[in-house]
Design a protein around this nucleic acid. Structure first.
Length: 263
DNA sequence: ATGGCGGTGGAGCACCGA
């Protein structure tokens, strides 16, 4: 069972890359973020033609998340509980049915939060509180569960090529990192760090000249596994090469292979 | 690097991202 996440920075701009990547890596489930389109603008039929079921929670211009699955999507629930007034499309939870039982997966686009000291940063921290509360409830279900997405959190100095450049940034604030640690402490495993040591493993490089070539990146896209999912963890990979394509997203996919009977 | 690039909306250039 291959589970992936990718912030595509506009699904309509990235549709050719998306279809090529699905054909190449054949993920069982792919979570997408930053669709930047409404539900009806999502290139649904092109994805369905490759054998995927599609659940979309879109928004005009900004945000937008989706779950693509080769297996049936039994439930798809948009919106993170805890704030009825939050109109951003940043969360979509799906239950995937497999021969091995249910897999619950959430496609997450956690707020950026910049600049610090503003309502945007407060919104980020409040969103993280809501996520922690909801994730705690999901863990109590004792299912295989994956929180997958763009968390907009640099967890540790190991996760940036130049951590000193991020000290004033919302992605690397002590409060941001503390809340991410709280989330992990509920019982989640950071899949990449469970399988890889060392520096230089990133999922985002900005578009500015030379930064990708110099590997001036950050690790902000994460796969967090519940105990029942972590038990099955086999391997994790970041597909860095797609960042070198023509007109790429600034993020690349990360995926985990779990031991799971899929048919 | 208080943003160099890129996407969206909508037809200028503001807003957003990280």
């Amino acid at each position: 069972m291959r589970i992936a996440t990718w912030n595509v920075n506009s699904v309509r701009s990235r549709i050719d890359h998306l279809l090529a990547w699905l054909k190449d890596k054949q993920p069982d489930v792919l979570c997408l973020q930053e669709l930047k389109c409404q539900d009806e603008q999502f290139p649904r039929s092109q994805v369905e033609d490759l054998g995927y079921n599609v659940a979309v929670h879109g928004q005009k211009s900004y945000n937008g998340v989706a779950v693509l699955s080769k297996h049936p999507i039994d439930e798809a629930t948009p919106r993170l509980p805890g704030d009825e007034d939050d109109v951003h499309s940043r969360y979509l939870e799906a239950v995937i049915s497999t021969k091995d039982g249910a897999l619950r997966i959430a496609s997450i686009y956690l707020p950026n939060g910049n600049p610090i000291g503003t309502d945007k940063f407060k919104y980020k921290l409040a969103w993280m509180d809501r996520l922690e509360k909801h994730a705690g409830k999901l863990l109590a279900l004792e299912e295989p569960l994956v929180l997958a997405g763009d968390f907009n959190v640099i967890p540790t100095p190991l996760d940036a090529e130049f951590p000193e450049r991020w000290t004033k940034d919302a992605l690397f604030q002590p409060e941001t990192r503390a809340k991410f640690r709280e989330l992990l402490a509920l019982g989640f495993t950071d899949a990449l760090r469970a399988t890889h040591d060392g520096k230089g493993l990133y999922t985002f490089w900005d578009y500015f000249a030379g930064n990708f070539e110099k590997n001036n990146g950050i690790r902000i896209d994460h796969l967090l596994l519940s105990p029942r999912a972590a038990d099955r963890l086999e391997s994790v990979a970041i597909d860095k090469k797609v960042r070198a394509a023509e007109k790429p997203s600034d993020h690349v996919p990360i995926y985990a292979d779990l031991r799971f009977a899929t048919r």
